[in-house]
């Protein structure tokens, strides 16, 4: 895959380049600030971008802003954001910028190479990957939401995994249930959240959106 990488920390950037190249990806641009990032995102049109939220010069949320700006130009440009902290507000902003091909995970997850590469692949394929940390922060609230409260405990559990971008097979494996049961839970979730089959494949993403947002 052709990847744009934005990370200001030299060691991490270098490490990521090495890791990604070792797995046969091509780094088309490695930048270290928000302005360069926006330029290379629009110019290079990568298969996926890996972006640190906090970038020079201000070290606030330049990465996120650049990504949101780029996605206004190119909706559904796949982006995986890395951050020292996950912030539900940012997750929501990302999701409302298109809802496809979005990842938002803690930087610490990079240390688990296989999982990290898997996240990149899923985002590049248009999936949604949310850090369990974001989800657990939102979980408190969602328990009391009306739509969400109609979901059974198991369905909510399944939805958390869907939000993390897992496939049915992956969810079945993690919850020790059959893939068929997962499919049943998911279709029940769709019904309860009022997502019709006409919404097509997008329903998984829509369910996650409903989950993170009202």
């Amino acid at each position: 895959m052709r990847i744009v990488l934005a990370e200001d920390h030299f060691l991490l950037r270098d490490g990521l380049i090495r890791l990604l190249e070792a797995h046969g990806h091509e780094i088309v641009a490695a930048v270290e600030n928000g302005a360069d990032l926006l330029e290379s995102l629009t110019e290079k049109q990568p298969d996926v971008a890996i972006v640190d939220v906090r970038l020079p010069p201000n070290f606030t949320d330049e990465g996120l802003r650049a990504v949101l700006a780029a996605r206004r130009e190119t909706p559904d440009l796949p982006v995986l954001l890395l951050s020292q902290y996950v912030e539900p507000l940012y997750a929501r902003e990302l999701l409302s910028s298109g809802g496809c091909g979005i990842g938002y995970i803690l930087k610490g997850r990079v240390t688990n190479g296989a999982q990290f590469l898997d996240s990149i692949r899923r985002v590049a394929e248009g999936g949604t990957v949310m850090d369990p940390d974001v989800i657990s922060q939102l979980l408190v609230r969602k328990e009391r939401d009306e739509n969400m409260s109609t979901l059974s405990g198991r369905e909510r559990e399944v939805l958390v995994w869907v939000a993390q971008g897992r496939s049915n097979a992956g969810i079945a494996q993690s919850l020790f249930i059959s893939e068929k049961a997962v499919a049943k839970h998911i279709s029940s979730i769709f019904t309860k959240l009022g997502l019709l089959p006409a919404d097509g494949d997008n329903r998984r993403v829509l369910a996650v959106l409903a989950y993170l947002d009202q």
């Binding site: 606030t60 912030e87 507000l89 929501r92 922060q137 939102l138 408190v140 609230r141």
Partner: peptide, 28 residues
């Protein structure tokens, strides 16, 4: 760190930080 100076407060200021608080508050 969240308890000392929340990143979203540093990044975005009071308004978005309050929105973020409201998002994770168990009461809508």
């Amino acid at each position: 760190v969240r308890g000392i100076h929340p990143p979203v407060l540093a990044d975005r200021g009071l308004v978005d930080a309050v929105r973020s608080l409201a998002m994770v508050c168990p009461v809508p």
